[in-house]
Design a binder for these strands. Structure first.
Lengths: 235, 235
DNA sequence: ACCCGGCGTAAAAGTTTCGTAAAAACCGCA
DNA sequence: TGCGGTTTTTACGAAACTTTTACGCCGGGT
């Protein structure tokens, strides 16, 4: 339930508009980030990796079309343009530049929310083609949400999968036990380290990994765990 | 998909509007089909299999929402609603019912064309394979809208078919319960998870699938469902 | 050797999610 | 208006998952 929240980035120079949008969207359960300029927006787009972007075309520091192109370049999130300008040329240009939708101010918040749902819905199918991660004889396919061993699908529980997927996101790197607990269970469970031990135990059984000589999930005593990919020998 | 020209179906009862759209779209290289009523439109949607549908909500013979739902269930083509009504509720209802966009008459043809390009662009990734999908002794033909078991056609209710078709669009891939509820029932029903359980139960009976050892519809407890294709054996 | 803290495993108890049946409400259609 | 098929409500037993509880292991420090 921690990664389930949809993240929306608002790029608008008017504080009042941002405030209005933030409150409206937050009440719908979305997580919000804000940027007040084009440059800041582009930076945040690559740092927070939002699921959707609301962009005001009338920014002071950059041309709207430029912002749109930059955003389109560096993150795959759909962009909904929000603008005061009614001009048809403006709309056509924005839509052809990659915008998913174009809403004219003043707009009804309910319509905007519906259009956000449409954009998210349309984008859900077009989710990227990430290549499966291979570790030993284990394949981890984050797109299909499937883990297989020698071609045969393994059945993992939600938490087991979440754990493995988290390690797979940063292959070879150590992930702190604390960090794992916070990300998988929530900040309250920061100190329930035995949850991890039990989870890892079951997981290693399913993956056919020996804790004495791990070839997949390696324990870093006192620190956390790491997923070994390709050739990694204990230092 | 035999031709590479993009096929657009126009559903509108006003002859003049159809004529205007036909000429405008034809000049852009689109191939056009026309329907003057909801019923005719739904029929044509499954016979000509358009790449996109332009739908007027103010049809004389059927409620616009009904047409929208029917279209959404039987062909994957994006629907752009064209309507004289400005009402926000109307827009929200149409968008949540599956419409890809909502354009208010009178509209600029250039904007409409841009929005058509957006819809086609967004939809390009979600191409479904036109060859029937085989899972065990079940054949799922998304083109003919037919599901058969050992050659014999099964009778599925609209929702049952919609569910199965959605799984078949991403074979082997897991689909979240939340996503299924939103796509089949609408965003409001996001939490009615028991709808899915009942639907799946009936569906498995009809398909002859045992939930304990599923060979077709596999449950991922806490996550969602997936259609098993090829060789997958339950542990 | 001894104690001790971090780790791994196993089996239980507890909680959530799933599957199924049957009844009630709904809806297009004659 | 009543009818047949479909969807939604309601209810409960079964299964899956998580958390608790308990115990054995290994290595380092004293």
């Amino acid at each position: 339930m921690t990664t389930d929240t949809t993240h929306i980035l608002i790029i608008d120079d008017e504080r009042e508009i941002r405030r209005f949008l933030r409150i409206s969207l937050h009440s719908q359960g979305f997580e919000i980030s804000e940027a007040a300029s084009g440059r800041e927006g582009i930076e945040m787009a690559q740092s927070v990796l939002p699921d959707l972007i609301l962009l005001d075309l009338g920014l002071p520091d950059m041309d709207g079309q430029e912002v749109l192109k930059s955003l389109h370049w560096q993150c795959r999130a759909p962009v909904i343009v929000v603008s005061v300008r009614e001009g048809e040329e403006e709309k056509v240009a924005a839509l052809d530049a990659g915008a998913a939708d174009y809403v004219t101010k003043p707009f009804g918040i309910r319509e905007l929310l519906a259009r956000i749902r449409v954009a998210l819905r349309a984008h859900a199918g077009a989710e990227t083609s990430l290549t499966p991660i291979r570790a030993g004889d284990i394949d981890i396919d984050l797109v299909q949400r499937r883990v297989s061993r020698g071609g045969e699908t393994l059945h993992l529980t939600p938490r087991e999968y979440a754990f493995l997927a988290r390690l797979a996101q940063t292959p070879g790197q150590i992930v702190t036990g604390r960090q794992l607990l916070i990300e998988l269970w929530g900040p309250v469970f920061e100190h329930n380290t035995h949850y991890l031990r039990i989870l890892v135990s079951r997981l290693r059984q399913k993956l056919g990994d020996d804790p004495r000589t791990p070839s997949l999930i390696q324990t870093e005593a006192g620190i956390g765990y790491r997923l070994m990919v390709e050739s990694d020998t204990a230092p």
